[in-house]
């Protein structure tokens, strides 16, 4: 029944504790995430417009200096200020995407878990079918219908992201459903809605919290890929993924132009990933140190 989970749990618990147990991590990670969120909100307001958007061929591909902290890109735009300005589109759109498809996934998994055998069968076949759509191809379709833009990319990614979540969560929820305390609640006369909201979901979602945080980094990367094929963020947007792909041709001569936004993506992914682990330890009393 809970074989796989119980076997993995101690190992996972140890790694989670090993990382989150390092003194300071518990403090630094939330601060980093908070800074990133603040940056996403105020970034476009504080970044000088000229430095971010104005092409200046004479200044192009300059190495990092006092004037340009992280150098300039192929069109002479300041990489540092572009990262600051791009935080909003990169971060907020990924948060939006991941939250969006997580909510869809929870809904679908709930229907599959509560609806009985037949509903489960039907829902899971639909999930299987939906899993077959590659996000990029689907996004191309959406872009064709709605016009290429960041919002088409966001919609496309929400619509292709949920099946994985739904499938994962349905498995976890099935396992939670077989726990004795669920039976205990059922014989107490608890309604289906209450059973779901108070007993099944709270004991199933910690997996999702970790996935949610880990997905953010991933999503930023895919968004970049979509920008590259021309259906995501449009130039001259400073979206981080678009910055990396835009600078890939000059990577040998001006590595900073691609590395700096790449580093921003990695740092963000790491921060959110660790946040997921910390949240898991917080939320799940079983993982807490006794």
């Amino acid at each position: 029944m809970s074989n796989t989970l119980t076997k993995i749990a101690p190992l996972r618990r140890r790694t989670v504790r090993a990382i989150t147990g390092v003194s300071g991590v518990q403090v630094i990670v939330p601060i980093m995430v908070a800074l990133l969120v603040i940056l996403a909100i105020v970034g476009p307001l504080i970044a000088p417009f000229d430095a971010v958007y104005r092409s200046n061929i004479l200044d192009s591909l300059q190495a990092p200096s006092a004037a340009h902290w992280l150098g300039t890109d192929g069109q002479g735009r300041d990489v540092f200020w572009r990262i600051i300005a791009g935080a909003q589109s990169s971060l907020l759109s990924s948060v939006l995407i991941v939250t969006g498809f997580s909510v869809l996934g929870i809904l679908v998994a709930t229907i599959a878990t509560l609806g009985g055998k037949r509903a489960d069968e039907i829902v899971m076949r639909i999930v299987d079918a939906a899993l077959a759509f590659p996000p990029i191809i689907f996004a191309l379709g959406v872009a064709a219908a709605l016009g290429p833009s960041l919002s088409s990319a966001v919609i496309a990614m929400i619509l292709t992201g949920w099946p994985v979540t739904a499938r994962l969560l349905r498995g976890v929820m099935k396992e939670t459903m077989s726990q004795p305390f669920i039976e205990n609640a059922r014989v107490l006369g608890v309604s289906r809605t209450r059973l779901m909201l108070h007993h099944v979901l709270p004991n199933s979602l910690d997996v999702l919290v970790v996935k949610w945080a880990g997905d953010i980094g991933n999503t930023i990367l895919i968004l970049g890929g979509l920008s590259f094929v021309g259906v995501g963020a449009q130039p001259p947007s400073a979206e981080w993924g678009a910055m990396v792909t835009g600078a890939k041709n000059v990577i040998a001569t001006a590595p900073w132009a691609a590395l700096a936004p790449g580093f921003a993506i990695a740092l963000t992914a790491l921060a959110f990933g660790l946040l997921g682990d910390i949240l898991q330890v917080r939320f799940n009393p079983a993982l807490r140190r006794r």
Binding site: F181, N184, A185, P202, N203, P285
Partner: peptide
């Protein structure tokens, strides 16, 4: 242990 919801 298993018959009480650990989150409540």
């Amino acid at each position: 242990t298993s018959s009480l919801n650990p989150r409540m």
